[in-house]
Nucleic acid binder design. Structure first.
Lengths: 360, 360
DNA sequence: CTGTTAGCGCCTTCAG
DNA sequence: CTGAAGGCGCTAACAG
């Protein structure tokens, strides 16, 4: 059968407790003893039984990372950064196993994964990306997070709205153990506002908006920023200038076609993200319109390929890698939570070739 | 403290064994009893203790997916497909927790994750992408895989060379329990050969090659296909026409610059993948060369953005989503392993705008 | 510094 | 169909 701690102990001529101690290194052990134990481990090819140790210690080395779409580089970069940070965590707690869970944006699957992670007694959970705005789901999720953090799991929100971080005080349930929720938010609203402001400064007045999926927090934030910029300059903003769609190229393409159908005089389009923006560009090209001469186009996120598109995309840079790394440190307790449990990360306007002054 | 099985049993007025049975559903239980138990579970918000059950049952519901770079859509699509397939696995074994592990292409981290997964007594492991060709690492990896599958973990290779699948017979160690390794390979060689063949048919003779990272199986396979096509047509193939680089845009850019420096008369370039191809295009543009009029460029993988590039990329389509889904079914035992444990998936040439006949 | 002694929470025979 | 009992492999006090 499989090798157990006892086998190693017997081989090394010590007790199981001693083996456990050298393996976990949280306790003084004589150098000679340690050497013999380590040798026995090698010889027997012993591999710790995770479940058993998790059971006994009432904790595991699993950290869950929930993402909306693992095939989207936005989440890939975020998750990769978290994971890198966790592997480097040879400090307290040792090596953590980062578990990336793909929710597909479905609130149900989000809850399912939360339960699965709680079942594994995960050490921490990082929730990334936008959340559903549906009140029922928001409540269920908040309850789930309270349960989790009550069970001692560290919870970090990354790129999610603040409200959830405050869910626990409102609920009146004070988690006994474990830290309260911590949130890292992106300045989606400010970034969107500056982006649309940039287009306005270039002389654009008829600006189409390909908003993200309806009913999602990120969509709402970016749309609010866009509208704030228009309002600020007293530009009218009829509902027909906004179309919702997913964060993919096809949606961007379709949305652009629809926007042009509604108003063929558009001179600029802001997209939900960079990927959708490329779809918008494709749709424009197919209709014989040039970017940016005829229509300016802007994206959001500044993913790596955006700089390489032709023309290079004007967009809003989000510090994804930094956010992921910080979330990783927070979830392992290697960084103190920011005051109030919330930190907002800046969004930087990146002006490139896809936007230009309006040629009337 | 946390709710346990015993609490639920007490609440429902039955024994712990009965609760366990209704929860696992592998055993006949009276409908009335089941109802009461389920109600008690609801009321107490009971969540199974994964480690405890894994310990007792000597198995867990974790499935690991190893990828080289989670920020690369190539792996995102693959991993997403595996994970989707696993969530749908409400059949035997129930819901599985898919764990995506980012190795960064490092053989050491690959081994580390394998151990971590073995420690968790993972139900299965899917290894994706290219492997290191270093003999020492190959041996260590093969040994690790034998250990894993010997411990009852299902192992599936996806996009990896065959040799590893055969490691276990050679090693002479017959895994007692668990299925032997299964491999899903991409026809990298054939795809590359057809791609270069296509360029040759268009009249190109001086074809630069931006190969992937050195010492990796996928790189070797694609390069072999490229060379086979050249040899087939009696075209000379000096070493200076090949430059190695990573799978990112920057590497593609740099490699293209280097290739042009070595031979400014190149009329075509095949890149390691689509991302690198975009970098190549950028480098060419920066040097005042047009694609495809002056230089044809081709990628590999056919990631979503490739069709949207300007010009759209000629490339080789790999059935990533299908491969991932199939790997998911294989690793859960819901699909029979192919004869010989190996299936090769086709690579399809996609001709688009970035390649054209050579204008001499 | 090291051994001994109890469980951690659940699954799984074995009776009933 | 259900209960009782033992142990999965490890860790965490206690003693020494």
């Amino acid at each position: 059968m499989t090798v157990t701690l006892a086998d190693v102990a017997a081989r090394a001529g010590v007790s199981a407790a001693t083996v456990s101690r050298v393996l976990n290194g949280n306790y003084p052990v004589a150098a000679g003893t340690r050497g013999r134990v380590l040798r026995a481990v090698e010889e027997l090819e012993y591999v710790v039984n995770g479940p058993a140790s998790a059971l006994a210690a009432a904790s595991s080395d699993l950290v869950g990372i929930l993402v909306n779409d693992i095939a989207d580089p936005f989440f890939g970069i975020l998750a990769g950064a978290v994971q890198t940070e966790l592997s480097g965590a040879s400090g307290p707690g040792g090596e953590k196993l980062a578990v990336v869970c793909n929710t597909g944006g479905s609130p149900e699957r989000e809850l399912t994964y939360l339960t699965l992670l709680q079942r594994q007694r995960a050490a921490g959970v990082v929730l990334t990306g936008s959340a559903s705005e549906d009140p029922a789901h928001a409540r269920a999720l908040a309850a789930g997070l309270v349960r989790l953090s009550g069970a001692g799991t560290r919870v970090v929100l990354c790129g999610r709205p603040v409200q959830e971080a405050g869910a626990e005080p409102e609920s009146g349930v004070e988690p006994k153990s474990g830290a309260p929720l911590t949130a890292l938010a992106f300045d989606n609203r400010g970034g969107a506002q500056r982006l649309t402001g940039h287009l306005i400064a270039l002389g654009h007045r008829r600006i189409g908006c390909v908003a993200g999926p309806a009913g999602r927090t990120t969509t709402a934030e970016r749309l609010a920023g866009h509208r704030a910029a228009l309002a600020e300059h007293g530009i009218e903003d009829p509902p027909r200038r906004v179309v919702h769609g997913a964060y993919d190229r096809g949606s961007g393409y379709d949305a652009a076609v629809e926007l042009l159908r509604r108003d063929s005089e558009l001179t600029a389009v802001v997209a939900a993200n960079d990927t959708a923006a490329l779809g918008v560009c494709a749709a424009l090209r197919d209709r014989g319109l040039r970017v940016p001469e005829d229509v300016s186009v802007a994206g959001f996120d500044d993913l790596p390929f955006s700089a390489d598109a032709a023309p290079a995309l004007t967009t809003v840079r989000l510090p994804l890698a930094e956010a992921g790394a910080r979330a990783g440190r927070l979830v392992t307790g290697r960084e103190e939570r920011p005051p109030g449990g919330l930190a907002t990360l800046p969004a930087e306007l990146m002006v490139r070739g896809s936007t230009s002054v309006r040629y009337p």
